[in-house]
Each structure stands twice: as C-alpha cells, then as structure tokens.
Design a protein around this nucleic acid. Structure first.
Lengths: 269, 269
DNA sequence: CAATACGGGTTCAATAATTGAACCGATCAG
DNA sequence: CTGATCGGTTCAATTATTGAACCCGTATTG
C-alpha cells in the first residue's frame, strides 16, 4: 500500500455524520500510528485536501477538492445525469438510493440520496464499494467487463456472517443477477441492510455504473421489493439515457419479464 | 516534498483546456521521471482520483473527488455563497472574476467565472495562488492573519518582470492595499494580466478568502478600474454575508472613501 | 489541588518504500 | 525497414517513511 493510498484513505473517514475529526480519533479509525497519521494529515493540509478548524483543531475536508470536482464534472458530467432520477428513486421507494461509477476495476460512490420517510434508514458512507459484498458490486460483476471477476475474487473480505466469501458462491450470485436482471445482496455488507442494484450504461455501450437501493432489512416485503425493482429499472433507464447510453435489449427483456405490471408508459419505450 | 504532494501535484496539471493528458506529456509537465509518474498515476487511479480514458489511454480526473467535494460543501458550504455574486461580478466587469479561500497558509481557488464579452480574457487555472504575486495573495496578506507574511517572503518566485521579489517591495504593496482597501497586482503573475482583489470574511470574523478580477491589461482604463472596484466591493459584501461574516468597519470606511459615487442602496447598508 | 488521562504535536534511528536509468513491446510516419 | 514516441515494467541504490517514546498544554477526577 503506497503512502498516497494511506494518506488519501484518511479522507474516507470523513462523512456527513462525522464531518470533523480530531487527530487521535482519526488514528483509531485508520488503525495507524499517531505520528504517521499526523504527517499524512499535514501533507493533505498543505495540498488543501483537509484543513483544521482553528477553534477545535479538528480536521475536515479542505477546499482543494472543489476545483477538482468541478473539473471532473466538466470532463465527464455524470453526476448531473444521475441526480434527478436518483431523487425520484429515493422518493418512490422511501429508502436510501445511490449511484456508483466504475473506474478501472473499482466501483466508486457518485451520489447517495436518503429518503426522509423513515427515522431508520441506510447510510452509504463508503467511497469505494466492495464488488463481492454489495448489490452494486454484483451488478457490476454481472453486467460489466469480464476482468472484474478476477479483481473481486482476489479480495473476498467477510463483512457480515452473510457475506459471500467463496468464488463459487460469488459466481452463483452473479449468475442469478444475470438471469433475473437484478443484483441482490441481503445483509452482505451490513447486517441490517438489504440491497438491490441494477447496472447503468454510458455512450460506449459498456457498463458505466450502478444504481442501488439500500433498504432496512426488517422493512423488506415482497411488495416493497417489487416497488424497488420498478424504481431501479426506471432510474437506470433515465440515468443511462442521460449518460448517453442505452440499456442493452437482453437486459430490457429481463426487466419486462420480471415486472409484468409496469406502467404502459414504461412499456412504450 | 512528500510522495503525497508529488502525486497530488499531478492533478493540478489537468484543466478545462487539457482535461485529458497522456503519461509522457504529464511527465514533461511535471518534470519528473516516467516510472515515478506512472506509479503515482496508478496510485491515484486505484483511489479513483484519476482514471484512464479506455480509448486513448489518456488520464483524466476520476470520480472519487465528487463525494469529497459534496462532503466539503456539506461541511463548509462556501461555494454556494460565492457563486451568484461572482457571476454578477463577471457580468458587470466583463472580465474574469474568481474567488479563493484561505486554508492554513495557502490560498486555494474556489471558483472562477469567465465573462464571455471579450474574445480575449484571463484564464485562472491555478489551484493555489502565490501570495506575493497575485492580487488575491496581496489581499490575504493585507487583511488576513499576520503569520502569512512569513510564508509569503519564504518564496518570492518571479513569475514576470513585474513580480515583486523583495520583502521590502512586498511590504510596500501590502501597505498600499491596507491603505486603499484594494490589492493590485499589475502583471505580477502573468504579463498581460492586471488583477485587483479584496478580502472576504466568514463567521469567525477573520479573512476567509478573496474576491478578485483578472483583467486583460491592455483594456485597463481608470474608468474600468472604478467599475471593477465597485463590483469587487459589492461581491465581497455579498459573499462575506453568505459565509456568515461581516466586513470590518475600517475596511468598509476605506471602500466608501474610495468610491464616492457608489449607489444609494450600497451606502444604505 | 495534586494526580492523571488525553489531546495535538515532535524527535530520531531503523527500516521499508520510493526512485530512475535502462529496457520492452506496440504503434506510427517517412 | 528505420527511428521516434507511446504506455508500461524491472531492479539495485537510496531516500523518505515509520512508530516508539517523548513533550507540553488542558481538561477530568478523586
């Protein structure tokens, strides 16, 4: 693991729930030495990636990420295209919806959108989604480039008792996703969370990202699952369209088969 | 210079003009070894900070910066507060306007807004603004924390023949800015560019950033300078207000003195 | 009000990571 | 075919990273 990775990993511990973190706490979270963590933070501070709250001495994300994000959006304007459909998805499902994008062999969170309908809800605070343990990852494996499977099987970390940890089991899950058109990861990454995901595509016709709903497991019912699937399909179609792509016909066929009760408008596409 | 800094410096070479850069070209731009640059890029790619265009093998800014920027905005929503006033400033001055924020001892670009009125215009592609050579930097030195001066004099790089390169000359410029309420850097960073800047403040009452207009030098007239000054004052007031701060009374007094013809509405504040 | 625990920040020798010249195969222009 | 340029790789030399121990200021506590 390079220093760059170690330093940047620190950034991943900041979240909406913990937007400012002190040195010692960050050491514990990162599981690293205090001196090392301090030097990494200092380096990041010099670059503007973090800054210190002068009052509390706590660290928080710095301003240097803003022009980079602006440039990213100007170069590859994905977020804009995903934003509105995602909000609609969170609205209709009343659960947390999120979109991730594939970059190389890794799946990175692009946006998360939490529904405010329930007091308990899933929180997606990961930057990078494990391929084998999340619905998004399974969707990427099932509908994305073939070489992803190698990257996934190389690191089958067990996050819960339900996490898939063998190559065989993973292949079975992926096959199931290919058959049904939906990737599911029941309690695979977090114990109380049941996730469903579908792929999204860009102008190249290849998988560019995934759309997922992370649902509080205890609320899951067959009826809710239907609603989530319907929402996912609609969101994926819209996001794919906004990204300049089209959903492959075989996948569209699967979705139509799985959701016979979808509206006439959707069928008309 | 730490590896982290070297790696992240690579990100600074991407711009709206060069959103995708190949390995060799980036080596030349960064002035570093090809193997090193490649490893740095690979590390950044693993973190999602850059990605490769699969078609051209060129590198571009990756998606990992997006959630970080989102979080930054959620933690310290500066950009939102600066956006609208900056557009107005670019509109009234017909020149390029930009806002930078102070983080530690460094001034980082937050937004730039180019007016489309002229075919030639200034382009602000810096991530970090040198304190001694830009109007923004001088504004920060004049109205920001005292310890900035030490950081500025430590690195008096000459960018043009007009750049201030002695501590004495720098002090004189800063004193002038303190007296007039406006920082000016005529051709200090780029030869054809004449810049003016004023400070902006946040809820702590301290300088939080700067507002500047970078003007094509050949267009500069006393009349245009007046218009720019008036625009800067208005923008700084609005941005400072949006950031939860207030412009210090002594500075407001200087501005009123310098701009006797400002509108009644502005005087009413 | 000592005693103490915990916060951020620093030091220095041991060590593990970074470095870059040279090299490889592919591609392209002349 | 030749030479130039591209992205990517190798390996020994070296350089920067590492972390236990330490410092100081400030809450917390019995």
């Amino acid at each position: 693991m390079s220093v760059v990775a170690k330093a940047v990993d620190l950034l991943g511990h900041f979240s909406r729930e913990a937007p400012e973190i002190g040195l010692s706490e960050l050491c514990r979270l990162a599981g690293r030495d205090k001196a090392t963590t301090y030097r990494h933070l200092s380096a990041l501070e010099g670059l503007g990636f973090v800054e210190q709250n002068p009052a509390t001495k706590n660290y928080r994300i710095g301003p240097a990420v803003l022009p980079l994000a602006e440039l990213r959006e100007a170069t590859v304007p994905r977020r804009d295209g995903a934003d509105a459909p995602l909000r609609a998805l969170a609205e209709t499902t009343q659960e947390t919806a999120h979109v991730a994008v594939l970059s190389g062999q890794a799946l990175h969170r692009l946006i998360a959108c939490e529904s405010v309908a329930h007091s308990t809800r899933a929180v997606v605070d990961l930057q990078q989604l494990p391929l084998h343990a999340t619905a998004s990852g399974l969707a990427a494996l099932a509908f994305g480039p073939a070489d992803l499977m190698a990257a996934a099987t190389a690191q089958l970390t067990a996050f819960t008792a339900h996490t898939v940890t063998t190559a065989e089991a993973l292949k079975a899950r992926v096959a199931q996703a290919r058959q049904t058109g939906f990737a599911v990861s029941p309690r695979g990454y977090e114990d109380g969370i049941h996730s469903l995901a579908v792929p999204a595509f860009d102008q190249s016709g290849q998988l560019a990202g995934t759309v997922a709903v992370a649902c509080v497991a205890s609320r899951m019912t067959p009826e809710l699952e239907r609603r989530i699937q319907r929402g996912l399909v609609q969101a994926s179609r819209e996001i794919t369209h906004n990204w300049g792509g089209t959903v492959p016909d075989p996948l569209e066929a699967l979705w139509r088969l799985a959701l016979p009760l979808c509206t006439q408008k959707e069928l008309a596409r």
